[in-house]
Design a protein around this nucleic acid. Structure first.
Lengths: 139, 139
DNA sequence: GCTTGACCTTCCATCTACTGGAAGGAGCAT
DNA sequence: ATGCTCCTTCCAGTAGATGGAAGGTCAAGC
């Protein structure tokens, strides 16, 4: 199986597959012509990586997950710990974005959005007003 | 005012201030010794940038906002449009993260997290199961 | 006058996770 | 032989900084 087919089968761009080989996530054999030869197991790993990346795991976490996946003596607590750590980061990010969203929303609501130059959005940016995150909009 | 004080006053690291000068967001004068000499206006702009970046505006959006800020003949609708575009992106991002969070949460709940190797998280990653986003966890 | 230390300068490398493109080889059909 | 598609490697670039090396400047202390 050449890289084109592997790309098709895994859903990852060929460029990305080459990159994953470069950083050691996969090690496909090579044909005599130098072309990468992907076995079913390689494609399986690529799909695993695609899914893990889609869930937001970093490359290094994917590397660890792949290692655990291939380790028949793994303890599921290790996998769970990784996932929980990631979940925590996602929660933090969501909270940050929500706070930010609330501020943006307030500013936008306060802005007339017409031909005149007066603008509460610019006024807020200039004032460096952080109080909106503290009081006003509860998440 | 040297870069250290400007950093202190604006809340931005000196490295970042140099970077902002490099990409043309600010243009502080230079003293005869080559040191950057920040005026109150420069520091004001830096604080403006710090606040805009904290609200998640991209550098190019910050450049545009700064331009509008300095343009006394601006129309607030232009500022509002920029902010609304950004708000939309934030909303999209939040929705993505929430969906992802729901999936992670389900997987984590299903995993025993003990010494045994059986792990629904790895099983899901290997199966490339996208159905969880479609059905199960409503946002 | 000399050294020490804090501060400043520029320039280059590094980070994440790819992506784009150039230059050239391999394979297959005509 | 030609053309076309696929493959290869290598280099550069993205966003937005950040870290560090090598070296200039300045004020204080002895």
């Amino acid at each position: 199986m050449n890289i084109g087919e592997a790309s098709e089968a895994s859903g990852l761009p060929a460029k990305t597959i080459r990159y994953y080989e470069e950083i050691g996530l996969i090690r496909p054999r090579r044909d005599t012509n130098g072309y990468r030869a992907f076995k079913a197991g390689d494609v399986h790993k690529l799909a695993f990586l695609a899914r893990a990346r889609a869930l937001g795991f970093s490359i290094e976490e994917c590397r660890a997950l792949l290692g655990l996946y291939e380790d028949e003596t793994r303890a599921s607590e290790n996998v769970k710990a990784l996932a929980q750590e990631h979940l925590h980061r996602v929660d933090t990010k969501i909270a940050e974005l929500k706070a930010l969203r609330a501020t943006l929303d307030e500013l936008i609501a306060a802005c007339a959005g017409d031909h005149r130059p007066d603008c509460p959005i610019l006024a807020d940016l200039a004032a460096g007003n952080a109080s909106r995150e503290e009081n006003g909009g509860a998440n």
